[in-house]
Amino acid sequence: MLQVNDAPLPYEPGMTVRDILKRKNYIWRMIAVFVDGELVPKAKYDTRQVPDGADVKVIHQIAGG
């Protein structure tokens, strides 16, 4: 199980950051992703695998409003 923004998300082997974003329907372009506190560069969303039990933060930068 992963924690994504403090909510549980079932883990699947080989899951990448991009997979998490798709699963959560996080389509906002202005995001910063941290896996266990480490910032993941945008260029690595497709390749960076996330380990089971990881604490993932997908920080949506505020805009609009």
Partner: peptide, 18 residues
Amino acid sequence: QHDEAWLIFMDMVNNQIP
């Protein structure tokens, strides 16, 4: 009016202000 405060992402999505 939302021009005073728009906190939905911080609150609902990011869960940064619990």
